[in-house]
Design a protein around this nucleic acid. Sequence first.
DNA 1: GGATTTAATTACGTATACGCAATTCAATGT
DNA 2: ACATTGAATTGCGTATACGTAATTAAATCC
Lengths: 224, 224
Amino acid sequence: MLEAPKPKTITTQAMEKIRQLIFDGELAAGSDHLESELADRLGMSRTPVREATLMLAQQGLLEVRPRKGVRISTLSLKDMGEIYSVLTELESLAAEEAASSGYSDEDLKALKQSIEAMETALEREDREAWAHADDAFHDELVRLGGNSRVESIVSMMANQVRRARAMTLYIRPLPLKSNEDHRAVYDAIKEGDSDKARDRHRSHRQHAREVLIDLLKKHKLFHI
Amino acid sequence: MLEAPKPKTITTQAMEKIRQLIFDGELAAGSDHLESELADRLGMSRTPVREATLMLAQQGLLEVRPRKGVRISTLSLKDMGEIYSVLTELESLAAEEAASSGYSDEDLKALKQSIEAMETALEREDREAWAHADDAFHDELVRLGGNSRVESIVSMMANQVRRARAMTLYIRPLPLKSNEDHRAVYDAIKEGDSDKARDRHRSHRQHAREVLIDLLKKHKLFHI
DNA sequence: GGATTTAATTACGTATACGCAATTCAATGT
DNA sequence: ACATTGAATTGCGTATACGTAATTAAATCC
């Protein structure tokens, strides 16, 4: 699981900073920006900014529109549906693979801890903490799946829906039932039952997808 | 399904040309190249070449190694397995979605034609034609799935394994059984049986994955 | 007054310039 | 011989320059 040591070039910094600006909403979805504006804002020249935007465009976070600048991507309901479908499939694959990997309890410690963190967060109705632990669960699940492509695609897709998740965090019902699912997935992985791990995670995700989309519709958030 | 009209900038041309050089094997897997070398080769300056390589790196076709130039990606057996797993999941999703879309016979014409093309190619033992039709089948299936993210991820993954498929085209057994699968998937989509479409395509893909990996092992092609 | 042509501006796409990190290689010391 | 050091070279990362497509504004015509 060794990754290449990351080069800390200015281009890389630009990518991370721009990504963060998008996640924080400082570059609002749908807004347009000049390369020179971003360069000024980040205190560097256009070159690394330009390179960063081209890479981020490949990841779907923004579009570079020739001669028109950079537009931060928006998400329609259809986009959300697409992304959640992909997440469902690939995370379910990860769950299946994790279950067939013969992990020890020790290997699964982080996964278990994230479930426990979700439970205590739910008891306290601490939505931020719950969201954080939920992220940790999904990240760890995918990591245990051991497929680096799945990891990077899932991370890309999760990045794209980050804003939407943040927006809905406080308007959605507390996911009281979801911990059952998490536990069931965890147990299936521990038992090595790959079909069960897969199916259980898949239905969990499909349900989450429906809840989210209904919620967005109900609040008329057709475009984020 | 309208895509944004493609800008024909030099950077775009660089991307396409470099991609083609990789597919054609003129930039061999594992080989290193200077930005200036590629720039000379393509008759342009370093800037668009550099931008192109950064984007292609996001797609996994090559790596940009700071201060060391561009390295064309190689594929290990593990990589092949990873990619085929992703393809299996996402294509199966596409089959499922296609089946629940209520497509008419007319809508499914291209899919049917690709199956027929595979059958006639098999009778003639024309492997090139078969491979071409097989590509068409998978492309069309994914298109019918109607998920643009799935389309682009699948296309990325298919690009990554292109070399390996070309290498094995003449050493693998003729896929005589696979047309049954294709027909079954087609029928399931036509009938609107999404579970069947999904399951059938999934097992088809899983089988193909195993065959390919065994083949690579048998020929000691551990690294392509 | 509204439409159309033309001039001016803007912002990008590409080329070029330049300095530094990384590598190479030779010279020196042991 | 081998290791070590340091100079020379290489190749990239970033900045800057510049021409041109796209947009806006102005001017002209009907």
